[in-house]
């Protein structure tokens, strides 16, 4: 408690808290850029963009340059002619709709599910999913324009949708979520051609920008909810092991796509250790970037050390 009150004076004016006091617009992360330099203050963001664009590039090498490393799209793909990968949630909908797929698809879904179950399901959301680029852009613009308000749906909406889409698949006999799924529409659109699908992607952008802060990925998307369920046992986790250094600038809360996950670890609410174990955490590492005090770092779920 005493450390917190002492550091109050040290809150920089560009941070969320400092700006709120001064009555100006916050620039979360500006302090970190000053302290650590631009590259270190964007390290995980740049790595994440490289991962997202790199995976997309692997899919595009074939149709653009005739270099067929990966065929297909995120729904189902074949790498180097041997490795099948299939979206397990998609396959669950297919099974719910009454179709038992061939072993390639089952094997592919098994490999994907095993990978994410081991390393962390929501790594998909922040390191692979192309819609993350869209919603991150919307969140950034929302911060820069200082757009407030809107109606954010409950964060449980996605879990209800996760179940209801399986029920709808069973009732209609088709892959229910695929009629609107912006994740597959964007990825397929980039590789096979958009048609009017860009309208759905634009809809997600506008929704996150004007109606609900971090609304799509954090509250609605049932694909993210599915990977959230796989995220319960994630090996890769963020820890706030230097939480004693925290100056309460609130920048991490401002950039975090799932801000509710930080508090238990950073402020020791209902837990002692500084590890963020909440299944909603996507391990995007943006909190690590924007913290000028280097409070956070990526580690494994077994590392409960605090320094």
């Amino acid at each position: 408690m005493s450390t917190v009150s002492q550091t109050h004076t040290a809150v920089p004016a560009t941070s969320v808290k400092g700006a709120a006091r001064a009555g100006v617009m916050a620039r979360p992360g500006a302090e970190a850029v000053q302290e650590k330099g631009w590259w270190r203050a964007h390290k995980w963001l740049l790595l994440r963009r490289a991962s997202q664009l790199g995976i997309l590039a692997l899919f595009l090498l074939g149709p653009w340059f005739g270099l067929w490393i990966v065929k297909g799209n995120l729904s189902s793909s074949l790498t180097l002619g041997v490795l099948p990968l299939t979206d397990p949630y998609l396959l669950l909908q297919s099974v719910a709709a009454g179709q038992w797929p061939y072993k390639e698809a089952v094997l592919g879904a098994g490999i994907v599910a095993a990978f994410y179950l081991l390393f962390g399901g929501r790594l998909f959301c922040s390191w692979v999913c192309p819609v993350n680029l869209v919603t991150d852009a919307a969140a950034w613009l929302r911060r820069r324009l200082g757009i407030k308000g809107g109606k954010v749906p409950s964060e449980y909406t996605r879990y209800w949708l996760l179940g209801l889409m399986l029920a709808a698949s069973a009732l209609t006999g088709s892959l229910a979520w695929e009629w609107v799924n912006p994740v597959s529409m964007l990825h397929r659109g980039l590789i096979f051609g958009f048609g009017l699908s860009w309208g759905i992607v634009l809809g997600v952008f506008v929704y996150d920008l004007l109606l609900a802060s971090r609304g799509w990925c954090g509250h609605v998307c049932p694909v993210g909810a599915f990977y959230g369920v796989l995220n319960k046992t994630a090996l890769i986790r963020v820890t706030a092991d230097k939480r004693a250094e925290c100056n309460d600038c609130m920048d991490c809360f401002a950039v975090c796509p799932e801000p509710q996950v930080i508090r238990p670890a950073l402020k020791a609410v209902a837990q002692d250790h500084p590890l963020i174990l909440d299944q909603d955490c996507t391990s995007c590492g943006r909190c690590i970037d924007v913290c000028s005090k280097d409070v956070f770092r990526l580690t494994t779920r077994f590392d409960r050390s605090e320094s």
Partner: peptide, 17 residues
């Protein structure tokens, strides 16, 4: 068609081949 819509995951591997 009804079974097709339940089974096809829209991956485009048939298109590629």
């Amino acid at each position: 068609e009804p079974e097709f819509l339940a089974a096809c995951v829209r991956c485009g591997l048939c298109v590629r081949d």
